[in-house]
Write a protein that binds this DNA or RNA. Structure first.
Lengths: 223, 223
DNA sequence: GTCTATAGATGGATAGAC
DNA sequence: GTCTATCCATCTATAGAC
């Protein structure tokens, strides 16, 4: 990418670091996009380095392995997404004296991934990457998903507090249903729905979709 | 598997055919189980033939390729599943003079896959296979999913007829949400929910889960 | 740190004897 | 139809020169 830098870069460490970081970033961007579009196993390290315009060996040099690269991207993105969700939940708690209504809790869970899917190219890719990694990822990714229940815990607790008369077991199941709704928002599923509805559904209208999802989930939760 | 058959099988075609069919069946069974548990790309033809106790070449001989084998299993299982769903919908229509209520339509959609997941080992495997193939399958599988909207059409039409005052667009989206709930019923997700709820949720109780899902979906639909 | 060349392993598919 | 042996493509990972 940035081959010609300075006439004499040997004694200059700052461009070295810049270049290092630039290579890493290029690999991350290319890998995320390719994984998101084609899936993890269908993409080779060669595909990634070719698209990034860097050397074949850089993936192993910077990340250790292809698996570790996937893991690193997944870790970053999910952390980012869950931070947004946690912030929204926190804000809702502030607004409602620590006891937000079901609708606000569900919105905190649903809104970030949905906005990502509808925002700029970068975040749409990021969201599709997360969904694909969840479905097709390595055993390490699956292990993280299985184990990382801590960020869901707050949502579960909030939901249970918002519906104290509902058996907790029921709240957990309904949370599971809502997560299913969220994770089903994939390109292929949208295409299918588009075909089924004869073009009536438009997933690009994020605001409308968001309202629909929250309405549906809230009704299910208040049943 | 069945090596020693008859002392002289050369002039006997029936055992030949039996053996042929037995080999095919053994490959189908082994492939379905391995794909369901480990995913399509993680399983090699060698793994399949080893588990089936047949020769390495039989996959290509009987099915043409590994991709074609996956496709064949997927085709059979989805046809089987969708037949059950269509039958339930049909029965509901008979019971309600052609206009079944939302709940009966949703039950026809949800009950077959859920009962499979909770019934015998064979059907549990079959259901996990379908879900995995949907997520990780080949392009051919994805193409089928994308194109095969015919069996969903009846459900969409029935739902629209059951809620004539609801804009069809809305009905399509809600159908999409329900499908998301259904396809999220994977081993890994159950495990996660189990951990989150501290063992409170038990997916083995199919009847209870079925009621919960239909309750949730119905409430969302009637909102 | 980059890059080329290559090791080392695996997998899908097939030819050819039986 | 079965089965062994093997071809050939592909991939990850790394050694070693620069």
């Amino acid at each position: 990418m940035t081959d010609a830098l300075s006439p004499d870069a040997a004694d200059d460490t700052v461009p070295e670091l810049d270049r290092d970081a630039a290579t890493k970033a290029a690999v991350l961007t290319a890998a995320e996009r390719l994984f998101a579009v084609h899936g993890f196993r269908a993409v080779s390290v060669r595909d990634i380095t070719a698209e990034a315009g860097v050397n074949l060996a850089s993936v192993n040099y910077h990340f250790g392995s292809k698996d570790a690269l996937l893991f690193e991207i997944f870790r970053r993105r999910t952390a980012e997404l869950n931070r947004e969700r946690a912030r929204m939940l926190h804000e809702a708690e502030d607004r409602h004296a620590g006891r937000p209504p079901v609708r606000a809790i569900l919105a905190a869970l649903i809104e970030p991934p949905l906005r990502w899917a509808g925002r700029g190219e970068r975040q749409r890719i990021a969201m599709q990457f997360i969904i694909r990694a969840r479905n097709e990822g390595t055993e390490a990714v699956r292990e993280v998903i299985r184990g990382d229940v801590s960020h869901l815990r707050r949502f579960a607790d909030a939901l249970i507090a918002a519906r104290p008369e509902l058996p907790p077991e029921e709240a957990y199941w309904r949370l599971h249903f809502v997560l299913g709704m969220i994770h089903n928002n994939r390109f292929a599923e949208f295409d299918r729905l588009h075909a089924l509805s004869d073009g009536l559904t438009r997933e690009s209208d994020v605001e409308a979709l968001l309202k629909r999802m929250v309405d549906f989930a809230e009704a299910g939760f208040l049943a």
